[in-house]
């Protein structure tokens, strides 16, 4: 067993490695990862759109997988590696190739959804490479990488809403970085 030993406790010490940096925090059990990132660690990239799993603006990578940080209790993630949009670029000035593609393709208007779109697209590229099918995948044998055409990209990014409707250019940008 781990967590609180005394029933009735409301906070637990929780260690999260965020963008390569370990943080040990006393976390109120009620706090979701999104709030810890934005309020405790001052990483404002992940956005609070709906706070209910309905928009994808809060998408980050936990242990390499894309997830909605608004629905994950931080305490339950003790020991996890978290990557946010702030951790995509390297140490130098260079943007991540996907970030550069979003700039080159003008894949945003207001930019509110962009951090979530970027993290979601990165997670999605790994899923396809690992052979994860989507609703529109046909004729790809189990376990083989799934080639990504525009329909695949659109379906796989359907968990990220864009109120500005930048979708066609988001697909263009993602197509640019497909290996």
């Amino acid at each position: 067993m781990s967590g609180s030993n005394d029933p009735g406790s409301t906070c637990s010490e929780t260690t999260l490695t965020v963008n390569g940096k370990p943080h040990t925090l006393l976390v109120d059990h009620r706090r979701v990862l999104l709030d810890v990132l934005r309020e405790d660690l001052e990483l404002w990239g992940a956005r609070k759109g709906c706070d209910h799993g309905q928009c994808g603006a809060c998408t980050v990578l936990v242990d390499g997988r894309r997830v909605n940080s608004c629905l994950l209790l931080a305490v339950a993630l003790d020991g996890s590696e978290v990557r946010t949009v702030e951790g995509l670029a390297g140490d130098g000035e260079d943007l991540h190739p996907l970030q550069q593609a979003f700039l080159d393709r003008d894949a945003f208007q207001c930019g509110y959804c962009t951090p979530g779109q970027l993290c979601s697209a990165l997670g999605m590229l790994d899923e396809a490479a690992a052979g994860h099918p989507s609703r529109v995948t046909t004729d790809v044998p189990a376990g083989r990488p799934v080639p990504l055409d525009r329909d695949e990209i659109r379906e796989r990014l359907s968990g990220n809403l864009c109120r500005c409707g930048a979708y066609p250019r988001i697909v263009d940008a993602v197509e640019d970085v497909i290996p």
Binding site: R66, E127, P133, L157, S158
Partner: peptide, 12 residues
């Protein structure tokens, strides 16, 4: 399964 929710939600 693939007809439900989103990639992010299905991962969790």
């Amino acid at each position: 399964l693939l007809a439900g929710a989103s990639g992010q939600l299905r991962n969790a």
